[in-house]
C-alpha cells in the first residue's frame, strides 16, 4: 500500500490533537503534544524513503549503494531536539502552575483565572 505510512501520520496527528483538546491534566497535555510532534518524524522519514535503499551511512557498504534521503533524517533529528526542549520548558511551566493554583486540570486553571 503506497500511502499507508502517510495515513499513519494523519492518525498520529489526529489522536494527539484529540488528546490535547480533551485533556484534563497538563502533563497529559504535554505528552499529547509530543505525540503530535512524533507524527512529523514519520512524515519526514516516509517522504525520504526509497524502496530497497540502504541507510545513508557508507562506512561499511559500497559508496554506490542507493541510499535514502539524508536531509529528512537530519531534519527529524532537529525535530527530536526541539521537541525535547519544548517538553522540558512546558513541564517546568506545569510545575509552576501546580505550585500557584494547586491543580493541573486545564478546566480549573481557566476558572481560577476568571
Amino acid at each position: 500500500m503506497q500511502i499507508f505510512p502517510f495515513i499513519v501520520v494523519a492518525w498520529i496527528l489526529a489522536v494527539g490533537l484529540y488528546g490535547i483538546v480533551t485533556s484534563r491534566h497538563l502533563v497529559h497535555l504535554i505528552i499529547c503534544l509530543a505525540v503530535v510532534q512524533s507524527s512529523t518524524y514519520v512524515l519526514l522519514l516516509g517522504v525520504g524513503y526509497k524502496a530497497g535503499a540502504a541507510a545513508p551511512f557508507f562506512s561499511d557498504i559500497p559508496r554506490s549503494t542507493p541510499a535514502v534521503d539524508p536531509v529528512v533524517q537530519a531534519l527529524a533529528l532537529t525535530d527530536v531536539v526541539v521537541e525535547a526542549a519544548v517538553s522540558a520548558l512546558l513541564l517546568a511551566l506545569a510545575v509552576q502552575a501546580h505550585k500557584r493554583f494547586g491543580t493541573l486540570d486545564p478546566e480549573d486553571l481557566r476558572q481560577l483565572q476568571g
Binding site: G46, Y49, A51, P56, A67, D69, V71
Partner: peptide
C-alpha cells in the same frame, strides 16, 4: 509520489 518512490534530487546528490 507514494511511499518508497523518493523524488529527489537533494538526497541523491548529497549521497
Amino acid at each position: 509520489p507514494g511511499f518508497g518512490h523518493y523524488p529527489g534530487p537533494y538526497g541523491d546528490v548529497l549521497n
